[in-house]
């Protein structure tokens, strides 16, 4: 049973993000703590897949929340939800991180990621590891906006509308970007498999 998170009559756990932001802006640390609880894992996931290692993911996640805490007084909900604002901070910090380091690290297939699979045969596991490594390497070679889209879609499981709010694009533009991302990933993967790239069809952009 979870303990109700209340203070001075405020039901933090039941409050919406906008209400929590309002309280946090009025110097209520418990409200910011509740926002932190709601989003720390999502931001960590996002940063982890963009940086490729847990150490930098922890470092950057910390910086995202410290920046959010420092700037929450300036946050103004003009159609951009708090979650989208957080993701934009994360996106900017990750972009700076890549720029400062001038590197594109490969996302490692560590135990955490592989724990989601229930393979029993070693051959199947090895094959799966190799395939996943290839896929993750291909994702890391995509432009940043496409990486961002895939992470928000498949890891964070956000709707196209929510992704659009974060990436400042329309829902239609997100669908179109997803389509183009799949096309380029398919071509890259086919080349990596050693097979001839599929001839481009004129119909349907295939």
């Amino acid at each position: 049973m979870t303990r109700p998170n209340t203070n001075g009559g405020r039901a933090y756990a039941e409050a919406g993000d906008a209400q929590l932001v309002e309280w946090a802006q009025a110097d209520d640390p418990t409200a910011f703590g509740e926002l932190y609880t709601r989003y720390v894992q999502k931001i960590y996931n996002y940063v982890y897949y963009r940086t490729g290692n847990h150490h930098d993911a922890e470092d950057l996640t910390s910086r995202v929340f410290f920046r959010a805490l420092g700037h929450i007084g300036h946050y103004n909900d003009r159609g951009v939800p708090f979650s989208a604002w957080l993701y934009r901070i994360a996106h900017n910090l990750v972009a700076n991180w890549h720029r400062d380091r001038g590197r594109q690290k490969i996302v490692p297939l560590d135990e955490t990621i592989m724990s989601g699979h229930g393979f029993s045969a070693p051959e199947a596991l090895a094959e799966s590891l190799e395939e996943e490594e290839m896929l993750l390497r291909s994702i890391r070679e995509l432009p940043p906006d496409r990486q961002q889209l895939l992470i928000l879609k498949f890891v964070e499981r956000l709707s196209n509308a929510e992704i659009g709010a974060i990436m400042n694009r329309t829902e239609g533009a997100i669908k179109s970007l997803y389509h183009r991302t799949l096309l380029s990933l398919r071509d890259v993967l086919e080349n990596q498999d050693g097979s001839e790239p599929r001839p481009r069809r004129r119909r349907f952009g295939l």
Binding site: Q41, N45, F154, V155
Partner: peptide, 10 residues
């Protein structure tokens, strides 16, 4: 993508 991009817990 759906199989590979899984949730990672801090």
């Amino acid at each position: 993508l759906s199989r590979s991009l899984v949730d990672v817990k801090p």
